[in-house]
């Protein structure tokens, strides 16, 4: 603590509340986190080597801002998870309630408009950053040997991101959502042999109904997040293992 370093300043007498506030103020810092992690926690779990290895990992010199899109995508994923969890507190996934509950979030819940708008815009932005990340990797040839598996994991993550977008689009249950999903689920029907089955399977019936809404809600908040988390973990483990690719 800087005040105590040179020892010249004698401790002023303070009343207890001020002293407590100063104590809290002093604890709001990375130093304080470090004191806990390197102190009591490390004495028990011996984590400091691993933490240092992770935090002091050197980024290669050639890395520039175009390498940030993957990280931005992950950040947006976390933002979407946080705001999405908050939205589930008020959203009701049924054909009679969905639209009303979204209107309620936008008009009545305090800062509901903010949470939903952040979710909306982060989702749009994420589709863009995913593509930007992919373009960067493609034109740097970073997908080549030995990083083919990571490219494949990335392609799955792209598909998952788009699936998030497609399922989330239905949830407001307004005209745009309904017709968007009607058209979107009709497209796979053009596939030979399995087309009709795919349409039926996606819609949970012959038409887009409340059953489609339940299905998409389950995909959007349970199934896709689980699968995506798995692929993200694989994606990150591989990049740490193999390192960032050298420029061509």
């Amino acid at each position: 603590m800087p005040e105590e370093v040179n020892g010249k300043t004698p401790r002023r007498k303070e009343n207890s509340i001020t002293a407590q506030l100063r104590g809290i103020w002093r604890r709001i810092s990375l130093e304080a986190v470090g004191a806990v992690v390197y102190g009591g926690v490390d004495r028990r779990l011996e984590l400091s080597d691993a933490i240092e290895h992770a935090l002091k990992h050197k980024v290669p010199r050639h890395v520039n801002w175009t390498y940030c899109f993957g990280g931005i995508t992950f950040f947006l994923f976390l933002v979407l998870a946080a705001t999405g969890i908050l939205l589930t507190l008020y959203y009701r996934p049924s054909s009679s309630d969905a639209y009303e509950s979204v209107k309620y979030i936008m008009n009545d819940v305090r800062f509901g408009w903010l949470i939903r708008s952040i979710h909306h815009w982060a989702a749009n932005l994420m589709a863009f950053t995913v593509l930007a990340h992919m373009v960067r990797v493609y034109f740097h040839g970073a997908y080549k040997h030995p990083r083919e598996l990571n490219w494949i994991a990335g392609v799955f993550l792209l598909a998952l991101t788009l699936a998030f977008g497609f399922t989330g689009y239905l949830l407001p249950w307004d005209q745009k959502a309904y017709w968007g999903t009607t058209v979107g689920t009709r497209m796979p029907a053009a596939m030979p042999f399995i087309g009709d089955f795919m349409k039926l399977f996606l819609r949970g019936g012959d038409e887009v109904t409340g059953r489609t809404l339940s299905r998409f809600y389950s995909l959007h908040v349970v199934i896709l997040p689980m699968v995506t988390t798995f692929f993200l973990a694989a994606h990150f483990a591989m990049i740490r293992r193999q390192g960032i690719s050298k420029p061509m």
């Binding site: 507190l89 008020y90 305090r110 509901g112 949470i115």
Partner: peptide, 8 residues
Amino acid sequence: PVAKYLTP
């Protein structure tokens, strides 16, 4: 905002 949001 989150605290406000959580309070119905």
